[in-house]
Amino acid sequence: MPTYSVPKLRHLSQRVRSPKRIVIVTNAASDSLEYIGLLQVFAEVRFFLRESGYAQAYSVEIVSRGTGQIYACEGLSISTTTSYAELGDTVDTLILQAADDRDECLNDTDFISWIAQMSTRVRRIVSICTGAFILAEAGVLDGRQATTHWAASEDFRSRYPNVRLTDNEIFTKDGHVYTSAGVTAGMDLALALVEEDLGPELARRVAQAMVVFFKRPGDQSQFNALGNPGPETAHLHPIEVHIRENLDGDLRLESLARRFGYSLRSFNRMFPKQFGLPPGQFIEQCRLDHARRLLEETDKPVSCIAAECGYASSEGLYQVFDRRLGIGPRDYRNRFSSSVQSTVLG
């Protein structure tokens, strides 16, 4: 097999006295990468510690609500042999995978009660993707900041209004409770846990070995599905249609109010009720949506895209991307444009 040559660790931030027990609780709804990715992060930790002559820092195991098959696809089958009910109390980090599609785990009162109890006994409790629904159902997230997959955020808010949900974060930490967005964000969070326990050098080495970001730039907003409508706009409010079709035109609030028969005061009062955002924020969102689509689907220069979206210069577009997405237009295009599309930096 190929021989890997890696430099040894110079030092660990904390001394490893005995392995910390990490338990991943999964079920049949979880994407396989949600636990395979985590297992690989901790396997790389084990590799680097062993190669550098350090004691092992973690013991990792996977359990489920029952036992048996939890994943089957294209000839691959994965099963668990241990139920959560067989675990003792000596767990350091408890990691919850995604909730199932039919809410079976959320309706399992014994399981939810166990989560609530364990949350007070472990050093930290973690959710991946819609595993945040499990933590919320158990009351663990009440009053706390949390995140989940961006596509499930609306449902989450309707179910758990006492949780301070953020749509944009890749992962969050509130006290000893950690939540993350979908699938690969679990690996981002796992790397953060390693850094927290054992320092940045080891976490960075693991990221390099896995060829992933040590700290991913940007946030979930980069990945949200675009709300920009296509040519079929008959179902949209006339004000929205006008804004989206005239992003490079006169969208001053006074002009919009006059065009649609409102006083400026009544227009500002009506707009958030109709569209969920103040008019200035809504217009910015429309411009951002259109810019993202052009960056993804065309090779237009950034300067032309900025003008088409109503910005006097590229600098205005850069400022919005940096503030809203955490990356610039060029980085966004490099990440999300078609692989066969030539990139024009403009």
Rank of each mutant, 00 (worst) to 15 (best):
K8N: 14
L9K: 08
L9C: 04
R10K: 15
R10A: 10
H11I: 11
H11D: 14
H11N: 10
S13L: 10
R15H: 15
V16C: 09
P19R: 10
K20A: 11
K20V: 04
R21T: 08
T26R: 05
N27S: 09
I36R: 04
I36D: 03
Q40I: 04
Q40E: 14
V41T: 10
A43G: 09
L49S: 02
S52A: 00
A55E: 15
Q56E: 03
A57L: 05
R65V: 14
Y71I: 05
C73N: 14
C73S: 12
S77P: 05
Y84T: 15
Y84I: 15
L87Q: 06
T90R: 12
V91F: 04
T93G: 04
L94D: 10
L96M: 13
L96Y: 06
A99R: 14
D101I: 05
D101A: 12
E104L: 12
D108N: 11
D110E: 13
F111T: 09
S113M: 06
W114E: 03
M118R: 14
S119N: 08
T120M: 02
F133G: 01
F133A: 03
A136K: 01
V140M: 05
G143K: 05
G143S: 07
Q145E: 08
A146P: 10
H149W: 07
H149G: 04
W150H: 10
A152W: 02
A152K: 00
S153M: 06
F156C: 07
R157D: 00
R157A: 00
S158W: 13
Y160M: 09
P161D: 03
P161C: 03
R164H: 14
L165Q: 02
D167A: 00
D167W: 00
F171I: 01
T172V: 12
H176L: 01
H176K: 15
T179I: 03
S180L: 05
G182P: 09
T184H: 00
T184N: 01
A190Q: 02
A190G: 00
A192W: 01
L193G: 06
L193Q: 09
L193I: 13
E195N: 07
R204M: 06
R205G: 02
V206M: 02
F214W: 14
Q222F: 05
N228T: 13
P231H: 07
E232C: 11
T233G: 11
H235G: 06
E240S: 15
E240C: 08
E245Q: 14
L247A: 13
R252I: 03
E254Y: 10
E254K: 12
L256Q: 02
L256M: 15
A257K: 07
R258K: 14
R258S: 11
F260W: 02
F260V: 06
Y262V: 06
S266Q: 14
N268L: 15
R269W: 08
F271K: 04
F271W: 01
P278Y: 03
P278W: 12
P279E: 05
R287Q: 11
H290G: 00
R292N: 00
R293T: 08
L295D: 01
L295R: 05
E297G: 01
E297R: 06
V302T: 14
C304H: 14
S314K: 12
E315D: 15
Q319F: 06
V320E: 00
R323Y: 05
R324T: 02
G326N: 07
G326F: 08
I327K: 04
R330H: 09
D331V: 13
R335D: 07
F336R: 10
S337H: 12
V340C: 12
V340G: 10
S342F: 11
